[in-house]
Design a protein around this nucleic acid. Sequence first.
DNA 1: CTAGGGTTAG
Length: 651
Amino acid sequence: MRGRPPQPSWSILSSSLRRPFPNPTKPPSPSRYSNGRRSDPPPPKRSFSSSPSLPPPEWIDPFIDVSDLNGHSSDLHQSPWVARIAALLDSSPTMESDLTAFCHSLLIRLSPAFVSHLLRFSDAPLRRDPAVAVRFFRWAGRQRRYVHKLESYTSLIEILLSSDTGVEKIRPLVLEIEEYTMTIASSNSLIRSLGKAGMVEELLEVWKWMKRDGLEPSLFSYNCLLDGLVSSGFIDSAERVFEVMKAPPPDIVAFNTMIKGYCKVGKTRKAIELTREMDSRVGGPDKISYMTVIQACYSDGDFDACLRLYHEMEERGLEIPVHAYSLVIGGLCKGGKPFEGLSVFENMIERGCKRNVAIYTALIDSFAKSGSEDRAMNLFLRLKNENDFELDEVAYGVVVNLLCKAGKLEAAVEQFEYCKEKGVSINMVIYCSLIDGFGKVGRVDMAERLFEEMVNGGIVPDSYCYNAIIDALTKYGRIDEALDMFRRMESEGCDQTVYTYTILIDGLFRKHMNEEALKLWRVMIDKGITPTAASFRVLSKGLCLSGKFETARKIADDLAPMGVVLETAYEDMIHVLCKAGRVRHACRLADGIIERGREIPGNVRKVMINALRKAGNSDLAIKLLHSKIGIGYDRMGSVKRRVKFQTLLNG
DNA sequence: CTAGGGTTAG
């Protein structure tokens, strides 16, 4: 539950949603104006003038009525003032005084509608520059006898929310709105933009004011509220709103918003249940409902569900977006089923969907990883010769990687050089595959050269790259240089991972630098890096083979309270000991497990039986096979004890 | 008279 925001105060919603707000009297206004809460501003009084000798300044409007000229009943043209004022709106420090001087010399004042218009329309420079918009808004507000329209507030807030302005700057603006009488359009606009920005507290304020002014939220209002709650992670609140929606009842958008909400918090099952409910309530899920849940299943790694949902979409005759195909095919590819992926892909083409590079890349990668390198390469070469596609760096990345993994370094370099020629950007991933590939076949010099070429090209290597080069150096005995790289990583601010440590610990043990290896393990633990089963396997192997299996056992014991999942730690150690022919030690370790009240798993017994047989001790092997050692119980006094391996060794 | 979904590599 870490990182989850606190639930907003529900009281506001529950009181206002359950019964209609009566709104008989308006609260006393804190406004400095005498006409109660602000609604539209008072009509500007033309009689006002600061100087009796001059005509009064004129309030200018954003539109001019030209209906008299052309005979149409109502024809509005934008006033030429709009462009002239807009030209003054820039980030210059004298913007305010320029505006004042301009208006003063031409005897004009900007009407509230004029200001609202400048804030609303996208051709005004204010859309791009929120800071200028705020300055203009504040300047206009200081004009004599001027009161902002509510729409100016909503437009300004929209501008601020679409930029990266901090929430703290927007909050006070929202609070100023309290004095206005809400309109359905303004409250909807606010609910939508506040919801998008995750300003749920403010959104609920607006909701309250809306109710206060006797406005019934529309379906649109409800849906924006739901979306706001959902995108801020308040799924419980959204759920309660959804449940009280009666008039209007939830529509397909409301359902889809809830589905998104459940998906967001990881409740994919609940989301799918909701799609079932849609059949009887809104005439069934649509393509967006399906897209949302397919996306969630994909993120969960539940690729079977992706495929099932896709089939459902087909049965219902829904239009299947390309992106749905991408997810389904991508899922099949990741799940190691490239042939099934290909068949869905063919369906997609039949239906006239546009092919894309991402899907091809996924297919190529999947074929390669499930052992059909030839097929993968053929597909790639076919695409390369077609002119419909520009293969990107990801596609080349996949191919370079597959060639490297197959040990075909010359072919990999060929593609790499081709990328350079054709201007396909060479990124870190491609370098990384090559470094790893050359390292794995022992051409450490090439791996090093590529690493330096990458760095000189301005790429800052990440942990994958460092791990690849460290692995190369380590595997071919250059442990000191590997350790140099390890330190370089640290000084460059690149995080060392559990893989980095695993590689080096393994390398150190290979060089019989047992103390250093153990020390490195401790450094890793101290840094708070969670060990993996593989990392412990490397450590325990090294320790066991150097006769320190007590130390290994103790470390495994220490890890358990850390909550590290090393279910197979002891089994791994027994494996290592058996493989090294130290069956006696393996037995002692197994007894240690028994002493802690655990059973020895069947596969571990099998390993021990095989080890005994290999060591030429087939008698003991058979005895173990037919005994209850490690799994059954002995009667010792009144206490149940599992039969120990000791009994085997004692004859 | 608005709103709800969005991928490929080490």
